[in-house]
Design a binder for these strands. Structure first.
Lengths: 198, 198
DNA sequence: GCAAAGTATTGCACTTGGTGTCATCGCGTA
DNA sequence: TACGCGATGACACCAAGTGCAATACTTTGC
């Protein structure tokens, strides 16, 4: 696929992350990104739909990971077990390059427009989970619920992980933690409700 | 606050919703919206930060509702009970004008840029819930978790509600349903885990 | 080797979103 | 009546994003 110089797309991604980091998202123009990558503005828009999109490779891969890990879970697993396994698979995807992900996270945290895009991507992940669960025979409302809960739980763990380099290599643990808290919070309340019925 | 004609802001909101509905978001220019409202493009941007924002009044109110309903919940309530009460309060806020909300929903569903904004607003709601719970003495990680879970559960109910006019006046029930499913899914799995430990 | 076909890149013109600046209008108040 | 203040408008400007046609390079078939 290589033409003039190989990997135009990758060069644009790297140049964009650098410039967004150095100067901020607003202060960086697309022409500037293209120039640093040795290309032109028009070529940038041939590769990416818009200025934010250049930061959001990865999400295609993420969706595939969810899809396959949910499909491959043992038949005996409960719905929540399946979700847990999928979240662990997603965590494993993040572990290898914490520095890169952290740089990206800082850039996104600094600009609402990028957060918007991130949320939208998260929503597509929710849809992916939902239909993958549904495909296992889980009823639609439950699948939807777990599809929404999954990314929510993951975010809680991810936010802690990304905030402190001391957690490097332990995102999986943090995800397990968050799932544990969920169980605790819900069952505590359920127990109380049951009691109050007596 | 009224000057030439009263309620410039409201006129812009109505004109925008109409035009987005009639022609689509992309096909509508800001100049057009302003013209229908009897104003100019510059005035539009004096009232709203950008083109999407004109659809997202409401969210300020929503945040206040969450804040006060969480603060006012009885001291004896479990964290999940508090969240449930807050979600019911939010539901009550939606009930009165289903047609308007539904029109708005259709417009948003038709365009990614608007969905992005919606997701961002939802995230700010999550933050509001988190800090309101934290202020009740609930520990930070649990508060965060519930802050993320809350809007997720609400969305499941809201999506069903908005999809079918037969649910008018029953959003509260749908929210209760979703919370029930959550408890079921989580406790089922917890029971299995406990069993498997024996 | 060479021509043809295909694809990545570019140049250019154009629309629109969004901002800065300054003038103007209409109202409340001294 | 004069003054101040906030809402509106006119104008110029920059950058995002698109459509279209030209060009540079690569690959394929011969």
């Amino acid at each position: 696929m290589a033409r003039w110089e190989p990997d135009a797309r990758g060069r644009l991604e790297r140049a964009a992350l650098e410039l967004y980091s150095e100067q901020g998202f607003d202060q960086t123009t697309v022409a500037e990104i293209a120039k640093r990558a040795g290309l032109t503005k028009r070529t940038f828009f041939n590769h990416f739909a818009d200025k934010p999109e250049v930061l959001f490779w990865g999400h295609e891969v993420l969706r595939e990971v969810y899809e396959t890990s949910i499909a491959d879970a043992p038949a005996s697993a409960t719905p929540l077990d399946v979700l847990a396994a999928a979240l662990q698979a997603a965590a494993a995807l993040h572990e290898p390059r914490p520095e890169l992900i952290r740089r990206r996270h800082v850039v996104i945290a600094a600009h609402p427009a990028l957060q918007e895009r991130e949320h939208l991507k998260r929503a597509t992940v929710a849809d992916t989970i939902t239909s993958a669960l549904h495909r296992r025979g889980i009823d639609e409302p439950t699948a939807r619920l777990l599809g929404e809960i999954g990314p929510a739980v993951f975010k809680v763990a991810y936010d802690r992980w990304v905030a402190d380099a001391a957690y490097d290599g332990r995102l999986g643990e943090l995800v397990a933690d968050a799932l544990g808290s969920l169980a605790e919070v819900v069952t505590t309340s359920a127990a109380r409700s049951a009691t109050s019925l007596l």
